[in-house]
Structure formats: structure tokens, C-alpha cells
Computed example of a mutant assay.
Amino acid sequence: MLKGVSTLIQAASFLPRPVRLRIVGAGPDRAEFEKMAAEAGDEAAIEFMGAMPAREAFSLARVAVMPSWHESLPYVALEAAAAGMPLIATKVGGVPEIFGSLSSRLVPPGDVPALAAALARALGDPQALEADALALRDRVREFFSVARMVDGVDGFYARLLDMREAGEEMARKGRAEAPARPGFTGAEH
């Protein structure tokens, strides 16, 4: 449920023209989603594809839709963006960080009408969606490359080590400069 599949199925029924959805992935809620899809009527032809590699899934679609209710920093969004795949996603977790200046296009999680509007916009203006996809691809290449991410992790650990060393130095100075406690000679009693 947390991946927002139910939101996507509901949004498809709000669109002004029929659409074809291919839902990729596997999980315990599939039977419930298939029932929802059957009840959606003729507004959407919905296929459940099961689990498959992202690259294969992207080849089956013109737009990737990630209607998640909760995420951290989803690799599928990074993979879609890096591939230049048009992506409609929700404003959850680290997704706004991935989108950067394009984050205004993100949809609130669980908001069926907003997701339907984003899908309608994609269907109605594929050139704008393609331009956004290319801008997002460039952003991901700049800020989420392996080299950039490794540098970020290395920098984080370097800062932690610097803080630890600074704390140890302060502790050493504090012991050396601490006044003797009155009434004690330093010998054990």
C-alpha cells in the first residue's frame, strides 16, 4: 500500500481519456489492486507486470509514475531520472532533493485529483514533460553520480573524525588544566 498503487489506479479513472497503465512490482496487496483495477472501468487498461529490472520496466512506458506515500531516497526515481525517463512522483522523503528546482511538479502523496492532473498534464504536453525529464537527468548526473555520492560520504566521515579529534584534544587540555581538588593529594585513600 505504501507505494501508492491504489492512488494511481483511482487517478486513472479521473482522466479525460482512457490510459494504459503497467504496474511493475510485487507484493502482498496485488490481489486487492487487481480488484480495484477491475472496478476502475474502461477508463484505464491496467496490467500487472510483476517484478522486473528497472531498465526493462522503463522500456515498457512513456512515463514512469511513482505515487508513493512514503519513501526515503528511492533508487527507482534516481534510475528513471538518470535514464531521461519522464517521471511523475510524489513529494515524499528525499524525492524533492532529487527533483531540486523541479520539485514544484511533485504531487502530494495520496492526492488522487493532483495525481490525475499530473497525468493529464503529461498526456496533454509531452514536450514539456520531455524537457523536464532532460533537466532532471542533468541534475541527477551532476548531484547524484557515484563519484559525488562517494565524496559526500567520505566528507561526512572526515568531519566526524575531525570532531572526534577536537573533542579528544579538548578533553586532554581539560585534564591538564583542571585545578587540584582540595583535600586530596592524588593518592588513593
Rank of each mutant, 00 (worst) to 15 (best):
A57M: 05
L60N: 02
D162A: 07
A54Q: 09
I88Q: 10
F144G: 14
A120K: 11
I98K: 06
L73H: 03
P86M: 03
S101C: 04
M163A: 15
I46K: 09
G50I: 01
R148D: 03
L87R: 02
D154A: 11
P67N: 05
L123C: 09
L73G: 10
Y157V: 01
S103F: 06
A114C: 05
L160W: 06
A158S: 07
R139V: 01
L119Y: 02
P67C: 01
M66I: 14
A45H: 11
V95Y: 04
L78D: 12
R105P: 00
A51C: 06
P126A: 13
D132F: 00
S103I: 06
E32H: 11
V92P: 01
V63T: 10
E56K: 00
R121D: 15
V76F: 12
F58V: 01
L78A: 10
M163S: 13
D125T: 08
A77P: 07
I88M: 12
A114P: 00
A114S: 12
D42G: 10
P67A: 02
F144R: 12
E97H: 07
Q127M: 14
S101W: 02
L136K: 07
A57D: 00
M66L: 15
L102G: 03
E39S: 13
V92A: 06
E71S: 10
R141F: 11
G110C: 08
M66Y: 08
F99N: 08
G84S: 05
A51F: 06
A38S: 10
E142V: 13
A118L: 04
F33M: 05
M36R: 15
S103W: 04
G152C: 04
D154Y: 04
R121S: 15
G100C: 10
P126D: 09
M149A: 14
